Amino acid sequence: MVVLLALAVFGLVTFVYLMLLGSCYAPRLSGRLKKTVMNWQSNPDSVRPAEVRSQAGRWGRMNPLLHLVTNTIEALQKRQDDRQIRETAARDAQHALEPFEAPLKIIEVIAALAPLLGLLGTVLGMMEAFSAMAATDGRANATQLSGGIYEALTTTAAGLVVAIPFAALAAWIEFRLRRIHKTINSTLVSILHIVPEQTLDAPESSGTASKSRLAAEPDSEPADNPADNYATAQGQRFAHATG
């Protein structure tokens, strides 16, 4: 029971920490960032990543997706190597999700260990009951047996009480992470499929923005479902977004 109580307290602290971490550092597609992506799709050369970062404010700069979007756009405007851009975007996207994986794993472990600890208490309680019966040569009364049976039932119930809420929390957190992964993946796809016709350093001729064109990817494969790929290896999570 002491171990189950300690696990419950530790899991609750982990959940609160995860919620605070998510409220501050979770990748999110804000309205301003969505407008930047739409401007990039319609007129790539009009987007200025430095201005987007400066206008985001202190709270906006805590958003990892803001840096992922602006860095990728800046690299595309500077005509950097396409393969390097995609690898960098995949690495940065993975780093944005890494802080949430360890707390999720802790909650999943607690949800798996709690019923096992309850089962261990059940076994110990039944051992105590049969030990009392053996000590009296099978003539133990109900009072002697009730202590062990009570211990067995109490630990089983405590293990389930701890395991059920944390199993539900783990499923909800994993669902939220899949939603975040889907948002990051769709944003990366929207950005990487557009190539500007001129770089930021190129002089502007008549003050009119040049048109954008879609970057054809003849050797790329169709994108998989991002929700189905969340549980795959870390190096493959953003494979369909980065080629």
Rank of each mutant, 00 (worst) to 15 (best):
G57H: 00
T88N: 15
R58V: 08
K78M: 12
A75V: 07
T70L: 06
T88S: 14
T70W: 05
A96L: 09
F100M: 07
A56I: 01
A102W: 01
H67V: 02
A93C: 10
I107F: 06
A102M: 12
E87H: 09
D92E: 15
I110K: 04
R79E: 11
D81K: 06
A89N: 09
R79P: 00
I73Y: 02
N63G: 07
H67L: 07
L104H: 05
D81G: 08
R91K: 12
D92C: 07
K78T: 12
F100G: 03
N71Q: 14
F100P: 03
H95C: 11
L66A: 04
P99N: 02
D81E: 08
P99R: 00
E101V: 13
A96F: 06
A90S: 13
Q94N: 15
D92K: 09
D81N: 15
D92R: 13
I85G: 01
H67T: 08
R86V: 09
G60S: 01
W59T: 15
E74I: 01
L97I: 14
T70Y: 06
A96I: 09
V69P: 05
E101Y: 08
K105V: 10
K78L: 11
L76A: 12
I85C: 00
L65I: 08
Q94V: 11
T70G: 01
R61H: 01
A90E: 05
K78D: 15
L104R: 09
A96H: 07
H67A: 02
T88A: 13
D82W: 13
R61W: 00
Q84P: 10
T72H: 01
K78Q: 14
Q77I: 07
T88C: 10
A93L: 10
A56Q: 02
A96T: 07
T72S: 05
P99F: 03
R79S: 11
E87N: 14
R91E: 12
R91D: 12
K105Y: 10
I110G: 04
A56P: 02
L65N: 04
